[in-house]
């Protein structure tokens, strides 16, 4: 579905991504794990063109989308749940969700019901300003907002960042549920354990390059991965 080839991205004067290639097959959960500064976020940001790649190609559903405008890419069916949630704090929950569907002109009724089913808490709080929600609720809102564009591929940048373990569990349950409903997922995580347990395919990124790849289960038992990312 998504095919990244030899992608290089310069960010803030350094080569943050040094020619990586990976693939996200349709209907799968793929995860990129790696330490801080490995270039994971930059990779996602360059897929939706928030940063322009220096070279390489990004293909989505057989079409080259490298360097196209962000709104064009969103309209083709990729959305990013940005790092640190980045919900709109002064807009209500409902307004946040409507912004998520900005690229669509058709009726939102069904989709609102869909995300409210996934996140009943958001329905209760639909009139509240986004900024007044708790961290976990804000993450739910960020995911729900991204779903409102009816994406084929949803990319999540560290959805577990700064959340309590129980809430992280809830977020991953939701990720599986969304996947079960037919959305392809590309996930970035520092919480390698959770991510690899959930993912079909995992890639390990180190300082701008992909150093290891395998199925989630394989990587989970891999000696090097265990040592570097799982703490034993």
């Amino acid at each position: 579905m998504l095919k990244v080839e030899n992608l290089k991205v310069n960010y803030g004067g350094i080569e943050a991504v040094k020619g990586i290639s990976f693939e996200v097959p349709e209907n799968s959960i793929v995860t990129l794990i790696g330490a801080n500064g490995a270039g994971k976020s930059t990779t996602l940001r360059s897929i939706v063109s928030l940063v322009k790649p220096a070279s390489g190609s990004i293909n989505f559903l057989g079409e080259n989308i490298t360097g196209k405008d962000t709104n064009d890419i969103v309209a083709r069916g990729i959305t990013l749940v940005p790092e640190g949630r980045k919900i709109f704090p002064d807009l209500t929950v409902l307004e946040n969700l409507k912004i998520g569907a900005y690229m669509r002109k058709d009726s939102l009724e069904d989709d609102l019901n869909w995300v409210y089913d996934l996140f009943p808490r958001l329905k209760e709080r639909h009139w509240q300003a986004g900024g007044t929600l708790s961290g976990g609720e804000q993450q739910m809102l960020a995911v729900a907002r991204a779903l409102m564009s009816r994406p084929k591929l949803i990319m999540m940048d560290e959805p577990s960042l700064g959340l309590a373990p129980l809430i992280v569990q809830g977020i991953f349950d939701i990720i599986r549920e969304i996947h079960r409903q037919g959305v392809t997922i590309l996930l970035i995580e520092q919480n390698a354990n959770m991510a690899l347990r959930t993912a079909d395919i995992g890639y390990v990124m180190e300082t701008g390059s992909i150093t290891m790849t395998g199925s989630g289960a394989e990587l989970l038992v891999n000696e090097k991965v265990r040592e570097a990312y799982l703490g034993n």
Binding site: V48, L50, D69, T70, N71, I73, V74, A75, T79, L80, P82, K86, I87, F88, P89, D90, L91, E95, K98, I99, G100, Y102, M103, R145, A146, S149
Partner: peptide, 23 residues
Amino acid sequence: SSYGRAFKAIRDDEIAAEAMGIN
């Protein structure tokens, strides 16, 4: 209107607004 919502989204967070497909 939806334009107004987009304006407010830009005010609240430019990067997130852009990621939602707002030009």
